[in-house]
Nucleic acid binder design. Structure first.
Lengths: 152, 152
DNA sequence: CTTGACCTTCCCATGATGGGAAGCCCTATC
DNA sequence: GATAGGGCTTCCCATCATGGGAAGGTCAAG
């Protein structure tokens, strides 16, 4: 009934994988964990609370960098709520941009598949569109680095 | 007035960067380009057409793997339109899932920032939420307990 | 003492893209 | 002809969050 937990327990309790806990320690998002004599990492309630904070922030799509800032503000008693809001607003803007991008892709693709006969004939509006050099709508540069930020 | 273009021209004409053209060749998405005696890659109209196809498919968010399939179907005169539709439908499903995920993040974050005072006071509903352990989202299974020897 | 679940560190892979270095090639200008 | 420059080549590294897996140490229970 100790308050100190191994990394596996901390992982199960927080929803952050053991692999990621070690990673967060290595990149400095969290401090170095206490160790047993054998070198096993140990986590108390405060550390697990922090890990849960991280997990929830990741669920909201915050980057690890953003989370570092949020953690700093969290531990700063004199923080200004607008500083937190600023981080959140920045992220919100990025999320909205990404959503708009994906929604426009969905829109375009829906129109294309709607015209597809879905049979054994070779005629296909999707390929026709993709190979149409006169197609203006898709010729523009769309933001790359399309969101692969998974949130599991 | 040759029809053969260097990689830089092909890039400008297709919207695919020279860097990516070489990359696509290396991973086998496109065939090996013809070369000058000095080793410079050369691209004709057909190759540039293919690059544009790729550019448009990427704009629609298709993965390089998907594009490989689409290119195969494009060049297959006996293809069935439903095969193409299948690839498109799979991608559409992924896009919809991604959109739903992002929209739910936006929704959650909007609610949080709406409650934020945006001033110099330390009170902040965003941090409050992130640190709230009663917050539903991640009560995962806990394993067993082992009494490892502690340093302290 | 063996077994097996757990822990450690270290390296590698993902996906699409860019940055940059070292060095070769081509052309225009002096 | 020599030189400057821009474009080409290949090769390696970084991103971002995450997982896979190997080799080996540790612990509790049978």
């Amino acid at each position: 009934m100790s308050q100190l937990h191994t990394i596996g327990e901390a992982a199960a309790d927080s929803g952050v994988s053991a692999k990621m806990i070690r990673h967060y320690e290595k990149i400095g998002l969290i401090g170095s964990a206490e160790r047993t004599e054998a070198g096993y990492r140990l986590y108390g309630p405060a550390e697990i609370h922090t890990l849960r904070f991280i997990r929830r922030a990741r669920n909201l799509g915050f980057s690890v960098d953003d989370i570092g800032e949020l953690l700093g503000l969290w531990h700063d008693e004199k923080r200004a709520s607008k500083d937190v809001r600023e981080v959140a607003a920045g992220h919100l803007g990025a999320l909205r941009a990404k959503a708009a991008e994906i929604l426009s892709m969905i829109d375009a693709l829906e129109h294309l598949t709607a015209g597809c006969t879905n049979d054994d004939r070779p005629d296909c509006p999707i390929l026709k569109d993709l190979s149409n050099d006169a197609n203006p709508a898709l010729a523009k540069e769309v933001g790359h680095k399309f969101g692969y930020q998974r949130v599991c």
